[in-house]
Amino acid sequence: MSQNFIADPGVIARYARAVGSGPGGLVVEAGAGDGRVTVALAARARRVIAYEIDPVLAGRLAERCGDLPNVRCVTGDFLAARPPRGPFHLAGNIPYSVTSRIVAWALEAPGLASATLVTQLEYARKRTGDYGRWSRLTVRTWPEFSWRLGARIPRDRFRPVPRVDSAVLRLDRRARPLLPPAAMDDYVRCVEVGFGGVGGTLRASLRRAYPAARVEAALRAAGVPREAVVAFVHPDRWVALARVLHDHGPP
């Protein structure tokens, strides 16, 4: 399944602590493999639901976790699973090839409290603005979710050894969204217009869909330079822009 498993016990222990569900939490693990990470998660969570699609690995997972009453092992495709109804935390040392699909699953799950995922380093840096640029997905979901770059994990800590390093990507649902639910459709429209321009500045992109005077006022209120390029605008400033462009209160 093109998955590289963490082989370093110290890295596994630090990762389990980073998931941070607490003793009362439910953790859903995607791509549990043979259960090495699952055991560490189970020591810290009230309950763990571990998914593994490979039947051979799923057998090893079930054997390793057979004596853990708070672990339920599921043989099957995590992406086909329904999210739990209540609050839960997502974890997983996930295959690089399905990272985007698993992140999309997480963002669409109503009960998701957090996601702590081991991903390719480049992906984690891209989504968290570590290159100084911000991706459309991060900006689009920013009012509801924070994105953070966690610890870097060298490639030699995995078996088989991948070609690149990995990192921990952390998503947290905000206790208080930066915008009210009624404003989210307008915010998403603003982001799509901004990122949908044909190169150039954010100002030029927004002027394609909004009155020029309102765009100028929004840029000033949000502290965005008139020459700012779309991808270099911090998500917090996008929220401020949308508030002014759509009359959703002061930035």
Rank of each mutant, 00 (worst) to 15 (best):
M1E: 07
S2C: 07
F5W: 14
V11I: 10
A16Q: 12
A18E: 13
S21H: 08
P23I: 06
V27D: 04
V28E: 06
A30G: 03
G31S: 05
G31H: 03
G31W: 06
G33C: 11
G33N: 09
G35C: 13
V39Y: 01
A40R: 13
L41E: 07
R44E: 15
R46Q: 10
Y51I: 00
E52K: 04
E52Q: 11
I53Q: 13
V56D: 14
G59W: 14
R60Y: 15
L61W: 05
A62Y: 12
G66P: 02
G66M: 09
G66N: 06
D67M: 15
P69E: 09
V71Y: 14
V71G: 12
R72K: 10
R85F: 13
F88W: 15
L90D: 06
G92A: 07
G92W: 13
G92C: 08
S97P: 11
A104T: 10
A106W: 02
L107Q: 11
A109C: 09
L112G: 11
A113Q: 14
S114K: 05
A115F: 13
A115K: 10
T116Q: 09
T128W: 12
T128I: 11
G129K: 12
R133C: 01
R136A: 10
T138E: 05
T138K: 01
R140V: 07
T141W: 15
W142Q: 05
P143N: 05
F145A: 14
F145G: 05
G150I: 02
G150P: 01
R152H: 02
P154T: 03
D156Y: 01
F158P: 00
P160M: 01
V161K: 03
V161Y: 06
R163C: 00
R163A: 12
V164Q: 03
A167D: 06
A167N: 07
V168S: 10
V168T: 04
R173F: 11
R173V: 04
A175E: 08
P177C: 04
L179G: 06
P180Y: 03
M184T: 01
D186H: 11
G199D: 06
R203W: 00
A204D: 04
A204L: 09
A204V: 08
A204M: 05
S205W: 10
R207T: 15
Y210S: 09
A213I: 03
V215R: 09
A218T: 10
L219E: 08
R220Q: 13
G223A: 09
V224I: 08
V224M: 09
A231Q: 10
F232A: 14
H234E: 15
P235R: 06
R237H: 15
V239F: 04
V239S: 04
A240S: 13
A242S: 15
R243C: 07
R243K: 06
R243H: 02
R243S: 03
L245H: 02
H246G: 03
H246M: 02
P250V: 01
